[in-house]
Amino acid sequence: MRRLLALATVAFAVATVTPQGPAAAETLRVGTECTYHPFNFRDENGELQGYDIDVAKAIGDHLGVEIEFHCQKWDGMIPALLANKFDLIVASMSITDQRKQKIDFSDPYRVSIGQFIGAKEKDLMFFNEDGSVNEAGFEGVKIGLQRATTYDNWIQARAPNAEVVRYDAIEALYLDLQNGRVDAIMTNPMKAYLKFLSQPEGAGFEVVGPQIEETEFFGIGVGVGLRKGNDELLSRINEGIRQVTEDGSLEVFARKHFPFTIHPQKWQGTE
């Protein structure tokens, strides 16, 4: 009996120190919403698809483990991770200080960005050739955005001479852009592409200038969430994210849904 216990202890120790991380199971359970198009959703055959799903599978390939998806409602996502219902959250969850108090995050695999959208024929020049802000281009231009958002903060800091019109709902923003009440809007280009630019009513409009990726305004982005204390696994996931960023996989995943990329342009380790 004692020998058996010793054996079990050794087996347990081996299991925990092997570099495979959770190799004991050979599968990593991933929590995601399954309802958030186009990041994690079921296609018409009931198969899980989307950017988050692709990223999770790629990380699984890198770690050499099976990925098993668990569908979980958004408000219970972090509690379910903490209750060990699954091992990772890959659900378009933005990295915030508040969430970091409960769980750890990997490096970002998707950015938080802002971008301008305006009428094609207006020739808006908000940026110089080198990508810096062209303040003169904002002179006498009406910019629509949602009240007190990160975009509001950005424009007040970077283009204080623009005339800002503040909206409550994003739908009204698109409508007034179409109606010509505002010359351009500043928003999240992913949402704007799905709801507006790719639709018939968005035909005469386009993105103006580059994706703005300033983390002090928009945050670090979206990362993989995991329970605290799994530093070994975390560093291996970060290595995986670095790999899929650099080998172009993230670009391939994004271009299934968008005509642009949505990951950090340079792989950036978190502090």
Partner: peptide, 11 residues
């Protein structure tokens, strides 16, 4: 979108 008194307050 008008910045009347309530609009200012909401902002």
């Amino acid at each position: 979108t008008l910045m009347d008194m309530t609009g200012v307050a909401r902002t």
